[in-house]
Amino acid sequence: MNRRFSYFGKKLFQYTLVLFVAISINFGLPRLAPGDPLLYFFDESTIKELTGAQKQEVLDSVGLGGTLWEQYIQYLKGIFTWDFGTSIKYAQPVTEVIADKLLWTVTLILPALLLSAVIGVIIGAYSAWNRGRKRDIGFLTMMLTFQAVPGFWIGMLFIAIFAVQLGWFPTYGAVSIVQDGTTWGFIKDVAWHLVLPIATLSIATVGSNYLLTRSSMLESLGQDYMTMAEAKGVTKKTLIFNHGLRNALLPIYTQFTMSLGTLIGGSVVVETVFSYPGIGRLLYESVVARDFPMMQGVFLMITFGVIAANIFADLTYPLIDPRAKSSAVHKGGQ
């Protein structure tokens, strides 16, 4: 028991240290970027006419007034009170804007990640079992192609073919301007707008899931217990999924949980291509507008998401592979 507490105590200290470093970097990076946030409020000629007091008043209103040290202290206080300041672009509290966009991002990213993981794992396991054969080479070539093609190019291709040429799906946005006013009609409209973005994200990320699964499965298939199971006449399906994939699942699970950690950041490229009102597009617009409070808020949410995903993975590893539990106890006693 003491070993386990020692292990998780070290982990907690590591995560706390990482969080402190991350939030400090998060504070500094936007301020190192070129550009003056006053340019979003005024043009250059107007800025030249403003007095120093007037400029300071505008900067104070969005949390950018005072020295860097004063801003940093205010920034840390805001984290503990969940107050990230006021957005320069939206003139609203950062937390309110993020909360408004977050549901759209979760609605887009979560199905895409699940779909990509399921397809990548199934095809990767099947390809590994048929290693060296034509079907394996065919799947490997296809997935490497998906991995190499930029996500924005896939999205633009889908828009050109399925939205513009065929007219099957909307070209942009999350909902139509005109709706029938019913709940079911709203749900169908949202789902129809999600088809192309989800397909784009799934294709753009399925390659990495496939390659990791195939690599892990190839290592697992070479173990003695697989040879013994095959010699006993175990069926092909049982060999692949109950013996091989189960023992190769840990790195696959790690990648999936890390993907969940970045979920809150959305997909900047895909959301921008499809003009989707999520966190990714919000981050892009904030960078363009030099909206420091909003950039800090979004980056901080991404940081929290990644650390939470790491903690979740550490806690749930023993459910995937009992060997992880004994390894954690052993490390805690060192």
Rank of each mutant, 00 (worst) to 15 (best):
M1P: 14
N2C: 03
F5V: 08
S6R: 14
Y7F: 14
F8Y: 15
G9D: 07
Q14R: 15
Y15Q: 07
V18A: 13
V21F: 11
A22G: 01
N26T: 13
F27I: 03
L29Q: 04
R31N: 10
L32T: 06
G35D: 01
Y40G: 06
D43V: 07
L59A: 08
D60H: 07
D60T: 11
V62M: 06
V62D: 03
G65E: 10
G66L: 05
L68D: 11
E70A: 14
E70R: 10
Q71F: 05
Y72M: 09
Y72S: 06
D83F: 04
D83Y: 05
G85P: 07
I98D: 00
D100H: 11
L103P: 06
L108V: 03
L110C: 04
L110N: 14
P111S: 00
P111Q: 02
A112H: 03
S116N: 04
S116F: 10
V118Y: 10
V118M: 12
G120M: 04
I123R: 02
Y126C: 13
R135Y: 13
R135H: 10
L140Y: 15
T145I: 09
F146L: 13
G151Q: 06
M156I: 15
A160C: 01
A163L: 05
A163Q: 03
Q165E: 14
W168E: 04
P170R: 00
P170A: 05
T171Q: 13
T171A: 09
V175Y: 09
I177P: 00
V178I: 11
G181M: 10
W184Y: 14
W184F: 14
G185R: 01
G185N: 01
G185L: 04
I187W: 08
D189R: 00
D189G: 00
V190I: 09
A191Q: 10
W192F: 06
W192E: 05
L194K: 01
P197E: 04
A199W: 09
L201R: 00
A204Y: 09
V206G: 03
L211Q: 04
T213I: 10
R214N: 07
S215E: 06
E219N: 11
E219R: 11
L221M: 14
L221H: 03
G222V: 13
Y225W: 06
T227C: 12
E230C: 13
V234C: 08
K237L: 14
T238K: 15
H243Y: 15
P251W: 13
I252Y: 07
S259I: 03
S259P: 07
I264R: 04
S267P: 08
S267G: 03
V268I: 11
V268W: 13
V273C: 01
S275F: 04
I279Q: 09
R281F: 01
Y284A: 12
Y284V: 05
E285P: 01
V288E: 12
R290K: 14
R290W: 07
F292M: 09
F292G: 00
F292Q: 10
M294C: 00
M295C: 01
Q296C: 00
V298N: 01
F299M: 11
L300G: 06
F304E: 00
G305H: 03
G305P: 02
V306E: 05
I307G: 00
F312K: 02
L315N: 00
L315Q: 01
P318C: 11
R323N: 10
A324E: 03
K325S: 11
S326E: 14
K331W: 15
G332F: 13
G332I: 06
G333N: 12
